[in-house]
């Protein structure tokens, strides 16, 4: 099957600044693909390269197997949900949703019907006559989604669509988006800087840094088997042990990643550490530790005996949980 989106050595340089610097990427049809990275890492630029708002300075972007070199945004089979939603303030909700159909020349009645259906799909039935300014952030987000989905795109691009929502709403929307994607079978390309969001929703995640993809893989790969310190550091608050610490402790010869929840308090063996801080998180307690001069954290489940701040403890972990990295980037 042809890839929904394919990047071949894609570059986007602004003068000296290399926003996207040689990205190879292949997103399968029907995949929920997340682009994860800090701001300025090139993930949003990649999304804009797919949408056609930016043109590559090198390499090639293909959608559904067709090279997009000279194809303007309005002729690409993709639609975008914008970070700020970009709803048209002078149109009501229904006309916003029906905008693309109106441009495509659909008649008034069918496009109204399609818009109302799309609004129903995003759980906003009956909101058609309102103005975007009368809606809450979450509702606007759904309207933006409906406006893109009503076009039945091959690929839906989402640029940090949940960024402006509060925590509870965000979690609810994550599930809804995921369910929607399963139901419609459309390829979703989702840009976020929130690793939790990326890991919980996506089939595959690409971690971006400095205009390059550092690692692309399943959420499990990214989370448990980071291939570079940057990934380990950025995805979840992993303990990153630098090479000199792993060598001194006799653990290996490169940097290593260790999840806080993999760290256990042991009575014998293990390594000596000092508790420098305690934070109660509900189901667990986070310990700040000093391991041989190196700061690290541990998540201890509820129920265990908690050491006092300043006390000396011994810590250990299952050998599999320590992930040694090949590269020392």
């Amino acid at each position: 099957m042809t890839a929904a989106v394919e990047f071949r050595r894609v570059e986007r340089h602004y003068g000296e600044v290399r926003a996207v610097d040689g990205v190879d990427l292949s997103i399968a049809q029907g995949e929920f693909f997340a682009m994860l990275g800090p701001s300025g890492s090139g993930k949003t630029t990649c999304l804009r390269l797919i949408a056609g708002f930016e043109r590559p300075t090198g390499g090639e972007v293909a959608i559904m197997g067709a090279p997009m070199g000279d194809v303007p945004p309005y002729r690409r089979p993709v639609n975008t949900v914008f970070q700020d939603y970009a709803l048209f303030p002078h149109l009501n909700v229904r006309d916003n949703v029906a905008y693309g159909l109106m441009i495509a020349g659909q008649g008034r009645a069918p496009r109204r019907r399609a818009a109302d259906e799309a609004l129903e799909m995003v759980a906003l039935p009956g909101y058609g006559a309102r103005k975007p300014s009368e809606l809450s952030g979450g509702q606007r987000q759904r309207v933006a989604l409906a406006r893109a989905l009503v076009m039945q795109p091959k690929v839906l691009l989402l640029d940090e669509p949940l960024g402006a929502l509060d925590l509870k709403l965000r979690e609810a929307m994550q599930e809804e988006l995921k369910a929607l994607q399963r139901r419609l079978g459309i390829t979703f390309v989702f840009v976020t800087h929130d690793q939790g969001e990326a890991l919980s929703m996506a089939d595959r995640v690409a971690v971006f840094n400095d205009g390059r993809i550092v690692q692309a893989g399943t959420p499990e790969d990214i989370y448990y088997r980071p291939e570079a310190p940057f990934v380990a550091d950025f995805v979840g608050s992993s303990n990153l042990l630098p090479p000199e610490v792993t060598r001194r402790l006799g653990l290996g010869d490169g940097p290593a990643a260790l999840r806080p929840e993999a760290v256990r308090l042991v009575s014998e063996g293990g390594h000596a550490a000092r508790v420098t801080g305690l934070a109660f998180l509900g189901t667990a307690t986070r310990l700040s530790l000093d391991l041989d001069g190196h700061r690290m954290t541990a998540l201890i489940p509820r129920g265990a005996d908690m050491p006092a701040e300043g006390s000396d403890v011994r810590i250990g972990w299952a050998p599999d949980d320590l992930h040694l990295m090949k590269v020392s980037a």
Binding site: F53, A104, A148
Partner: peptide
């Protein structure tokens, strides 16, 4: 007018004139 407004229009299939 946010630039995204114009991009959104193009994204939904509108030529620059539209």
């Amino acid at each position: 007018v946010p630039p995204s407004m114009l991009e959104a229009s193009g994204d939904l299939g509108a030529r620059p004139g539209q």
